[in-house]
Amino acid sequence: MATDVATQAAVPEVQAFNITLIIRRFLPEIDEEARWESFDVEVYSTDRILDALHRIKWDQDGSLSFRRSCAHGICGSDAMRINGRNRLACKTLIKDLDITQPIYVEAIKGLPLEKDLIVDMEPFFAAYREVKPFLIANSSPEPGKERRQSIEDRERFDDTTKCILCAACTTSCPVFWTDGQYFGPAAIVNAHRFIFDSRDDAGDVRLDILNDKEGVWRCRTTFNCTDACPRGIQVTQAIADVKQAVLRGRA
């Protein structure tokens, strides 16, 4: 009995509170323009924005549309603009936001809006494909062996291997907003991942692709991308690395 009381005291009750979510809606069948719609939801302090969106979709308005897959911050489906900052809905705890004010949720910017929080990601992936994000090697590894790489060589591109292609960085970039032709931070990050890989032999090809009017020189180092990255990648640093590599002519 005494142990039961002690266990109960040790586990604090999960706090519940009411919040207001203002979501930028766009239903292409009905709406000419996107509009803001307000929802009141009861949530727990352990809930994330994604849970609040689920509660709205399941209990209040089934027409609310958004993408999510793993819901644990690794698939990169649910990047959205939460209170003006690009975040993953599944990694943003509601208690970390200012819940005395309404929370604004909208689709990521700069890509064509399809419905509610869903945008057309194709231009984003088109830029990604253009930087050839795959290993291009002229040599074959020793028979029966992997390609060897020193710890130091692996270290060079370690940060950029973390990208989950959620588009939070690219759609937080003011240059991308005004000029959709800019490759965008995500494509440069994924080029960086192979340019600085000692096993890859096509670094010069990728540097040539990014030494473009719409390539790395378009970056204004506003650090929006670094702030937006849910994986904590130093995106602006990666872009600076690629700039230096273009100037040197090699990785």
């Binding site: 766009f26 292409p28 709406d31 323009e33 996107a34 910017k109 700069g110 890509l111 064509p112 809006l113 399809e114 057309d120 231009p123 088109a126 830029a127 253009e130 907003w177 005004t178 000029d179 959709g180 032709q181 030494n211 473009d212 009017k213 719409e214 390539g215 020189w217 378009r218 273009v246 100037l247």
Partner: peptide, 24 residues
């Protein structure tokens, strides 16, 4: 591009062309 505010506006990446002076 007004892709920020106009939903479903057409969008495509175009191929680059010409000399690149941006690096210089």
């Amino acid at each position: 591009m007004s892709t920020v505010d106009a939903p479903r506006s057409p969008y495509a990446r175009t191929q680059r062309s010409g000399t690149n002076w941006e690096k210089w």
